[in-house]
Design a protein around this nucleic acid. Structure first.
Lengths: 190, 190
DNA sequence: CCTAGAAGCTAAGGCCGTTAGCCGCTGTGG
DNA sequence: CCACAGCGGCTAACGGCCTTAGCTTCTAGG
């Protein structure tokens, strides 16, 4: 039996690639083992099972997303930072159709790297909002709105929920502009 | 063999109840058959299979949501309509944790009722935005923003993505207020 | 009343995940 | 240089789920 030389890192990375190619729901241990040239049960030497793999995949994707968001906002402020952040967020979702949904899983509390990645991603968002002078509860609410809007948009887009012909890019630009306006005039209590 | 007297309607409705109780991922033909007091293959007399059931469930949930959104905005306009719509949307997601995700599936083009339900739901949103004087591409972009924001918020909320202690209700109120402001001053081209 | 079709059933097969238990490669200490 | 411990692969087997095939029985309409 020639050894393939796998380790957890390789397995998870290949799972991420496979998920991006065939979709999260088609990411199966069987397909992954096949892809890695190994029998299915061999994967259990590196990963505790399907659920643990999903958690590791989430940690990886979240870290990637956090990196890209952080890089996007570095050296920018205000509307510039917001536009860069939003563009980076959506670009990540486009480039990683399988990985993106994994970023929405709540981080595994027993995995410090996963937790840290989640905090870095939210940190990039909060840093952007600090540029609007938002703090405390205002910053929290605005963070939730920004996360909601970005996540909702890319989710609907990925699901094919925007059927109409008008360019989705233009809609997204207007959405970001509207968010910029909303954050400028925050808070807006009813 | 005493007959239970099932039909497609009963099967789909019970599937919806089961999904709300145990979650979409735990909604399995086996569990549904068990709940209905019937052997698993018997379900195939009423539903073509698991995928068809999911489509029918989506049609049902979308119709329910469309009804509630339509009722919420009836007789209201402007910010009133927006707040009522948003509250109804979120309330539906809370009351139907299994059904809500099904509303996001793109309607089956071969199922006229499903398509009509989707159009009614979007219609309620567009009607609300008409109250802000939005039309044409502006209405389209604003619709996309509203759908994105509402869907994103309830998705993150359902996934437990809002970990912090601050009341989620307050965040949602502020989000709706911010949307109201954004729609008032639409368009906001960058 | 009788017959056709609807609505239930059992049996069987395929895919997936999981566990158990076996064996050979590999690299490290003596 | 070699022994051996342990790691990384394997096969076998089981259970759960979905699906199809084909049988039987209830029931409604002529």
């Amino acid at each position: 039996m020639p050894r393939v030389g796998l380790n957890q890192r390789t397995v998870v990375r290949e799972a991420a690639r496979l998920a991006d190619e065939v979709g999260t729901d088609q990411l199966t241990l069987a397909a992954l083992a096949n892809r890695l040239g190994v029998a299915l049960p061999s994967l259990y030497k590196h990963v505790r099972g399907a659920d643990a793999l999903a958690r590791k995949l989430s940690a990886l994707a979240t870290a990637e997303l956090a990196d890209e968001l952080t890089a996007a906002v570095a050296g920018r402020a205000g509307g510039d930072a917001l536009r860069a952040l939003a563009a980076a967020y959506r670009a990540y979702a486009h480039r990683h159709p399988g990985g993106y949904p994994a970023t929405q899983r709540v981080p595994d509390p027993t995995d410090p790297e996963h937790v840290a990645a989640g905090e870095r991603a939210v940190g990039a968002i909060r840093a952007t909002l600090r540029g609007y002078g938002l703090d405390g509860d205002d910053a929290l609410d605005a963070t939730r709105m920004l996360r909601s809007t970005l996540h909702g948009f890319v989710s609907l887009e990925a699901a094919g929920g925007f059927g109409l012909p008008r360019a989705v890019d233009a809609s997204f630009d207007n959405l970001v502009a509207a968010l910029d306006g909303a954050f400028r005039s925050w808070p807006r209590r009813a």
